[in-house]
Each structure stands twice: as C-alpha cells, then as structure tokens.
Design a protein around this nucleic acid. Structure first.
Lengths: 143, 143
DNA sequence: TATAATTATCTCGAATTCGAGATAATTTCC
DNA sequence: GGAAATTATCTCGAATTCGAGATAATTATA
C-alpha cells in the first residue's frame, strides 16, 4: 500500500522554508529577525508576559529568551519588570517605542504574509488548516 | 472577506516544528543532526555530488556546506574528491562506512517519519501535498 | 590571446540557538 | 518550621548557520 508520508515531509519542509524566507525578509526591513518580531508581536497582542511564558509560546530555550529579550531591551522596544508577588519572575512589556513600532509595522507584515500564502484559495486554506492541525497534534504527541 | 492566511501560517509552523522535532530526535540516535543526515541521504540516494549542488538541494550557504562536509569527513562517512575536468569543483561521495550506515539507518528513519505523519489519512496526505506544493511554489516566487 | 566576468570552495567573524549548571525564590511535604 | 523539590532567570561554552571576502579555476568576450 502506497504511503505518501515522505513526499509530504519534503513538500511541507519546502513550503515552510519558502514562506519563512518571505516572512524573514520582511521583518528585516525593520532590523528585526523572526524571533524578535515574534516576541514583540506576542507582547503587542497579548500584553506583558513572564519571560518563561514567552519561551513557551515562541518555542525558545531559556538561554535564548534571555538573549533575545536583551537585544530588544537594548533596542528600546521592551523593558523588564520584576514581579512583586514572585520575585523569581521577570515580566517583559513593550515600551511606547515598541508599541508604536508594532502599530506601524504589524499591518504591513500581516499583509506580506497573506500575499505569500495566496497560492491556494480560501477554502483550500481552511482545509489545509484542519489537516495541519491534525498533523501537528499527532506529531507533538510522539515526542 | 475572511482570510485564514495568518492562522494557516501559525498551524503550518507548528506542524513543521513538531514533525522536525521527531525527525531530529531520531537522527540523534546515530549522532547525526538533520543537516548531516540530509547530506548523507542525498549522496546515498543520488550518488556523488559537487559540494555546490549539495548546497542547492539542502538549502545551505557555501560556508555551511564546507562545515558540514568537514564534520562528515571527520566522522568517516564521506570523502572529497577533486573533479578532473574542472578543478574548482570538489565532489563528495559516501565511503563504505557511510554507505553501510545509511543502509542500516535509513529504513528505520523513514519509518519514524511515516509514523510521525500518520495524523491524517493517505487521501488527506495526497491533498495536503497538492496544496503545499502550490503554497511553496507561490511563496518561492515572491522572493 | 589577454582581460573581464563568472564560478566553486574555503576562511573567518558575527549572530543565533541550545542546554547544562548556578543562583535565588517559592512551594511542597514531613 | 525546615528540608527537599520545583521553578524562573541568567551565564557560559558549544554547535550551527550565514554571508562577505579571498583564492583559484574556468569561461566569455573584445
């Protein structure tokens, strides 16, 4: 019986890489890499987060969070603030500069992504989302 | 009008990462990372290649090819051989050790991947492949 | 044929990521 | 209450990747 898994693996990888390439090139317009953009977007849309939680959402190791948050703090887009209840925890939150940046660039970035994903129709996208969700869940459970 | 592009972007990323995580963990059983495995697999299935061509297929910058081929040569899985027609070119080809390794591990790696991708049915896979091909082509054209 | 343009590989520094271990704070449990 | 386990962050070294520039070889062109 035929199994298309390996081909699926290959085309999934290619599609992912091509799309990420577009996304990356776009964020570079603003001097940000994808990780930095991801952190800023998280804080912009979901508000302040403990560093730990950021790592969970963006899939970053603890050392990498410290690193990327350092970079963004240097650039003035976010700040750290100690948690008062639990002093192990540090929150990251957007500065005014960071908020303004995201207001400026998020819409056009979203548009670039939408453009990049226009290789299939809206109804195909809905289908693809369903399948990719299943694939992702299933694979994640095999860790 | 609704546009599911951003959701598609997110679930595509998640699915990709989960699957790659499984693939990576599997190759680590043999002390290889995914890039190393990719190079060996290419040589195993498609025969000797100029380093340049390897970079084209695996999507690696020139400096990275030199690096990964160095590692694999150190480990004894491949060797370099100067091209006689064109002395700018260096071929990489599997040693006996490398060939034996791939004979040993490729089948089980393929099986792990197939397992990881079993979150959807065979007919869904065929559909997914079609859509991902379109997505990939379209995005690649926007570079 | 000499010169210019192109091509393949390598070197090297910078950037990013991981993960183990250190430290400090909090929570659990006896 | 205090020891032990857990949790959050940071530090630091190792691994990997990129890309610019160097070098050498080949091809195209005047």
């Amino acid at each position: 019986m035929k199994d298309s898994s390996l081909e699926l693996f290959v085309v999934l990888s290619r599609a992912y890489q091509s799309i990420m390439e577009v996304a990356k090139k776009d964020t570079q317009r603003f001097g940000l890499n994808l990780t930095e953009f991801g952190v800023l977007e998280l804080l912009y849309h979901k508000g302040p987060h403990p560093l730990q939680k950021i790592g969970g959402k963006i899939l970053l190791a603890s050392g990498s969070i410290t690193y990327v948050v350092d970079r963004l703090e240097e650039k003035g887009f976010l700040e750290r603030k100690a948690c008062e209840r639990d002093r192990r925890i540090t929150y990251a939150f957007l500065t005014e500069k960071g908020k303004t940046l995201m207001e400026d660039i998020f819409p056009s970035h979203a548009e670039v992504l939408q453009q990049a994903l226009n290789g299939i129709t809206e109804s195909e996208k809905t289908e693809a989302i369903q399948m990719l969700k299943k694939l992702g869940k299933y694979a994640a459970a095999r860790k």
